[in-house]
Design a protein around this nucleic acid. Structure first.
Length: 442
RNA sequence: GCCCCGGUAGUGUAGCGGCCUAUCAUCCGAGCCUGUCGAGCUCGGGACUCGGGUCCGAAUCCCGACCGGGGCGCCA
């Protein structure tokens, strides 16, 4: 029997293989027995190979081939034969067939059945779901997006770091924390690397990024929330304003899309998705302009209100209609809406406004960030305003007393980015094993 | 956390007080077929989430639990 290391993948078989012997391996996708001839579709990571056997050629092998359970793992040796009838232009005439792992029946979820399955059923049987090329395509595209983003950030001088996910205190108000036991202390799962990445701005590692899970114990059950998501966090120092930070957010969103389009076109075709490459710079409007725009489009909203889900969606529609843009910034959020964000820098000439911005993608917030307050005294004032216990943030504050450059950054939601890019109806589709309020398995 | 909706074969569904011995497709099994690739044909198999209640009678109505879908709030 040939060694597993020597299998030839479906996409490697070329004209030169015709008449030659190969070993192929994969899952038995479908077996079709026509009586005197049978076809077995063997699926591997790149595609499908048709294994054709004739009864009169080898009755025993024919019997074996036609009684294989779907989705069993097979290792087959045989001869590659050019074929006008086979879809790939060739087929393999088997000599030996080894069932390496037999699949039980019935399958918990069909891979090529002609009926759909609910997302819940698919997630409960994710390993089966991922045997579908179009499901895997999402994660191949996601990997390419991250590849493009890492390439861009590296070329811009950013250093990739990893900060603790087990922490003593949370960064932001609002979002709730998952408490955990930590030896004889109580701790939390990090909701954001906020405090650590700001800490690093005082070190000389002053352009950093991190791609890591973030945990939010919010009891929100929507198609755009999960309890564990991948946060791309950026922080950069020696900036002049939030505009320097926005330029990076723009570069990430742009380069991720461009790389996906270049390097994952096959997967995009599989999903029937066309990615328009956005023009830069992305449109920018202030919060105040956004409110006016919403009012002009018939929404009941006042200056000082949150945009809300309805406002975000409407804004996405309006901007697509009027400017043809999927990605756009909303800037200068009022201090009243960012009061909980104690580290946000307020405008020097107007303390009621911050330099904080959101980057929205088709009516969905995917990035939030801005310039931070780096002046110790002002920061402490803002924390007191939020009734925060300064002692428990001492490690954070200390760095501001010994030389902290002006800086800013943001969090970029990878799954939301992928969800919007691929028009996925639910963010859970963009996570291999999503965690939400009720789902802990698998 | 709040509001609305739903749970029927492995999968996806129809049925919404007696016509249900529960529909259809997919799937699984037996058989026929030497070019299938949404194969075709014949025959067979498989289900009303759980616990209470109403009623002569419950898949169907009511209550609770569990699970799921959507929306809002909050956010990435």
């Amino acid at each position: 029997m040939p060694s597993w290391q020597h299998i030839t993948y479906s996409n490697e078989i070329k004209d030169g293989h015709f008449g030659k012997s190969v070993a192929v391996g994969g899952w038995a996708q479908e077996v079709r027995n026509l009586g005197g001839i049978s076809f077995l579709q063997l699926r591997d990571r790149f595609g499908v190979i048709q294994i054709t056997s004739l009864k009169k050629r080898d009755p025993e092998l024919f019997r074996q081939m036609t009684t294989i359970q779907r989705e069993s793992v097979l290792l087959i040796t045989g001869t590659v034969k050019e074929s006008g009838e086979a879809k790939a232009g060739f087929e393999v005439i088997p000599e030996t067939v080894a069932v390496l792992s037999e699949a039980m029946t019935p399958l918990p979820l069909g891979v090529v059945d002609k009926v759909g399955a609910d997302l819940d059923t698919r997630l409960n049987n994710r390993f089966m779901d991922l045997r579908k090329p179009e499901t895997r395509a999402i994660f191949q595209i996601r990997a390419k997006a991250l590849e493009g983003i890492r390439g861009y950030l590296t070329s811009e001088g950013f250093v990739e770091v990893t900060t603790p996910k087990i922490v003593a205190a949370g960064a932001e108000g609002g979002a709730t924390l998952f408490p955990i036991k930590y030896f004889d202390k109580s701790a939390y799962l990090a909701q954001s690397p906020q405090l650590y990445k700001q800490n690093l701005m005082g070190t000389g590692l002053d352009r950093i990024f991190e791609i890591a899970p973030a945990y939010r114990a919010e009891a929100s059950d929507t198609v755009r929330h999960i309890a564990e998501f991948t946060s791309l966090d950026i922080e950069l120092a020696f900036i002049e304003s939030s505009e320097d930070v926005m330029a990076v957010a723009e570069g990430i969103a742009y380069n991720g899309l461009r790389h996906v389009k270049e390097a994952a076109s096959e997967q995009l075709d599989m999903l029937g998705v066309e990615i328009p490459i956005p023009e830069t710079p992305f449109p920018r409007m202030t919060y105040s302009e956004a409110i006016d725009l919403l009012k002009a489009n018939g929404m009941k909203v006042e200056h000082g209100d949150d945009l809300g889900t309805e406002g975000e969606k409407l804004l996405g529609d309006v901007i697509m209609r009027e400017r043809g843009c999927e990605l756009y910034f909303i800037t200068d959020f009022p201090t009243s809406l960012k009061r909980g964000t104690f580290y946000a820098k307020r405008h020097d000439d107007d303390p009621e406004r911050t330099g904080y911005f959101d980057l929205d993608y088709m009516g969905q917030e995917i990035v939030s960030g801005g310039q931070r307050e780096h002046r110790y005294d002002v920061l402490v004032e803002q924390m007191k305003e939020n009734s925060m216990d300064l002692d428990s943030f001492e490690f954070y504050l200390k760095a501001f007393r010994f030389g902290m450059p002006p800086h800013g950054g943001f969090g970029f939601g990878i799954e939301r980015y992928v969800q919007k890019m691929l028009h996925l109806p639910n963010i859970r589709e963009a996570v291999l094993y999503p965690r939400d309020r009720l789902r802990l398995i698998p």
